[in-house]
Nucleic acid binder design. Sequence first.
RNA 1: GCCUCGGUAGCUCAGUUGGAUAGAGCAACUGCCUUCUAAGCAGUAGGCCAUGCGUUCGAGUCGCAUCCGGGGUACCA
Length: 596
Amino acid sequence: MLIEQTIRENIAKAVSALYAAEFKAGDVQIQATRKDVEGDLTVVVFPFLPYSKKSPQQTAFELGNFLEQNIDDIASFEVVKGFLNLTISQKYWLGQLTEASRQEQYGCSLAGDGSPLVMIEYSSPNTNKPLHLGHVRNNLLGFSLGEILKANGNRVVKTNIVNDRGIHICKSMYAWQKWGEGKTPETTGTKGDHLVGDFYVLFDKQYKKEIAELMAGGLTAEEAAQQAPSIVAARGLLLKWEARDPETIALWKRMNQWVYDGFDVTYKELGVDFDKIYYESETYLMGKEEVMRGLEAGIFYQKEDGSVWADLSDEGLDHKLLLRSDGTSVYMTQDIGTAKLRFNDFAIDKMVYVVGNEQNYHFQVLSKLLGKLGFEWGRGLHHFSYGMVELPNGKMKSREGTVVDADDLIAGMVDVARKTSEELGKLEGYTEGEALETYKIIAMGALKYFILKVDPKKNMLFNPEESIDFNGNTGPFIQYTYARIRSVLRKATDRGITASMNGETLPLTEKELGLIKTITLFPVAVKEAGEAYSPALIANYVYNLVKEYNQFYHDHSILAEENENIRNFRLILSESVSLIIKRGMGLLGIRVPERM
RNA sequence: GCCUCGGUAGCUCAGUUGGAUAGAGCAACUGCCUUCUAAGCAGUAGGCCAUGCGUUCGAGUCGCAUCCGGGGUACCA
């Protein structure tokens, strides 16, 4: 048991014994003691003053005395103003350290058959263009969230809903038919998603040109946008698609497959995967059915033009369109269908949507609509809302060509990792294959950490030049420290030193104590990250640990140390730190190289 | 207009359920490669935590108001 809990319970007992009052153990405030003050843990005594009816100092003294007498592991205490600073015995810290080094899954509680089943939806691309930086943030957050939830004892199903139908893919299809000259990924050597994206851009260009021409001919902007030949043709394709025209369906399947093949490559590079993939072309009809059912049941209403609406004013929201006047479905309709299908397919306890914050309103509405339709689980869905990624010169806009393409980004990162490594001579003696593998790990570590260390709900600025920095609070810095620790352990093993501890109390330096405290609290950090759904918490935690570790080892060489007990103790310390880095980075989805 | 999320060092970001004197990295400047690997370490400098009022023993953190910025707001997804 963590000593915090013991202290809490004893404080409650003390309040009862000394002041004849009830105080819940869980409400006792405990925090890490400031670095410049003697002690390890601090109890804030202000909340007890109403019961003790004494000065903060006096109260702290009385509680401190009680704790010192009743808890073996409290070595001493000191009172500063209203703060009771407790010094914990070295024996306790050493015990925690040994424990940490023994557990392969330190800090994690593994899921069993009866554990809650959480489904996470993330990525969710359109099939008309390649993945970009925004998707990268989404994918990394989604995957990382899954790892964190797993570490907190949940079973996790990662899912991806692919928006494979609609006007957008028809635009690409039309452009390919008209100007594609039979080009394929094979004949052009272009990645499939990029090829399809190129035709989407081509369509847009042509479309704009036509609009300009029509407007020069006297039409209004709106009329021109509706009447341009390209858009008319694309709409025609959509109608054909909905009528299941064989030729159109075949082309649709063919071009979507190109895109999927391209996505698979990017997903693999990012290190993300899915347990189950849904396609909107397979779920939107169920959404329609549900809406019609709701209409018949009087939950929704129909306007004169035939469009179907939900009145959410009783829930504090507005009216929401569910089916267009022409009977076609909207985004919301599809999401209703997808949600129902998922809950049919899996015994989901909790549904998490990793989707950008521009859709906050959408998910608020979705939750209420599902509730109205009688799906109680709908009210419990969780929208993991994250902020946008901005560039130094402003927002990303695909039409203006200011998007950062995911594949380009990854390739660029690997390139920088290669150059930097070569300059520093870090990977001498590696085979070409080993070196490339390491460049990739480092490059992706840099990218992933750069994105994940930021609080998900905030908008973030992505500066390509800064993201590839390997110094300071970065992924490679943490990976590098891990590699160094492994090196220490390797060399120690080579010399026949086995890490063991005889359990006797060793003299600990302040830095050692600080490190061990951090290690001890790792499970707490994992749990908090799970509750707050925050990869950033883990990232910052691991960074602080690594920084402390580096400082520590700068001052204390392990192998030069004569005393065997101390040497072994430090090996265990190394092992535990490396374990936490590995687990912590694992939770972020970042791999760490054994050596660099 | 209404709803919602932000505003902390020149820049990018941390800051635990309100706790003690506000924390990193980058950029700038100064030192340190016989120890495990300098992708490192140590140090200097840099702050009206957007602004005002309030809540209380105590506010970067909670409440209200204002200013600035992002997003959303009935037939895009």
